[in-house]
């Protein structure tokens, strides 16, 4: 979501941060940059990808469906940030009816509604698999989002359950659990304590800002 990606090449930055972002001649460069993101050679860069969609929006003759689906796939890996919806907002009704886009939209809805089991079932579909294939490490990124959401919700969770959420079994799951510091006890994982799942009363405080009081302090001056 941040606009200034530290690893962003200067060449790209000069396009995104200036009015060159509206120049159709820059599309090939930005396409290459998307390819690099897909290959995980550079960091995901939502601002650059949105700039591509905006170029499509202004110049419908430049629309390239391959890159639309790449951008949407990459946007899924940004969850819980709503990048996918931000991409959709730059497309239009007709593009959203495209079968590839619809398939990605299905995936997004499953994830947004936390129907993780459904997500993995959808991903078994050959065509869908093909769409997301271009994105290196796609499944791992999604697992990252699922784990984060689970960790925020649960203190303890059964092994069986988490295995189905993550679509991981046996050794793979054990390795993964280790990497995230989950401790197994009697087929139940204890998850690390974070702000979201700790047992601490939530205090809704009221703060008075100094600015709120300026007027009142002003009265004192008049006396």
């Amino acid at each position: 979501m941040t606009s200034n990606i530290p690893g962003r090449p200067k060449q790209i930055n000069d396009i995104i941060e200036t009015v060159e972002r509206y120049d159709t001649e820059k599309i090939p460069l930005l396409h290459e940059y998307i390819d690099e993101q897909l290959a995980n050679k550079v960091q995901y860069d939502s601002a650059a990808n949105l700039a591509v969609l905006k170029l499509y929006q202004f110049n419908p003759d430049q629309i390239n469906f391959k890159y639309i689906s790449s951008i949407l796939t990459k946007a899924l890996t940004a969850l819980p940030d709503p990048d996918f919806n931000l991409c959709l907002a730059l497309l239009n009704l007709d593009i959203c009816n495209d079968p590839t886009v619809s398939k990605l939209y299905e995936l997004q809805k499953a994830l947004e509604q936390c129907r993780f089991n459904d997500f993995w079932t959808l991903l078994e579909n050959e065509e869908t698999k093909k769409i997301v294939e271009c994105c290196v490490g796609f499944e791992d990124s999604i697992r990252g989002f699922i784990s984060l959401t689970i960790e925020n919700t649960f203190v303890t969770i059964s092994k069986e359950e988490i295995s189905s959420y993550l679509n991981l079994n046996g050794n793979d799951l054990d390795e993964y659990a280790k990497s995230r510091n989950w401790v197994l006890n009697d087929n139940v994982f204890a998850l690390p304590v974070v702000k979201e799942n700790e047992d601490k009363p939530k205090i809704v405080k009221e703060n008075v800002k100094f600015e709120q009081l300026t007027q009142i302090i002003g009265y004192a001056n008049e006396i």
Binding site: T153, F154, V155, T156, I157, S158, V188, K195, E196, N197, E198, D199, K200, P201, K202, I203, V204, K205, E206
Partner: peptide, 22 residues
């Protein structure tokens, strides 16, 4: 977390966090 009501799950039990509203 933006809501005033918060909770965590211990397997199948929902524990609702105390919330102190000033």
């Amino acid at each position: 977390q933006t809501t005033d009501i918060d909770f965590y799950l211990k397997q199948d039990m929902i524990h609702i966090k105390d919330s102190k509203n000033v």
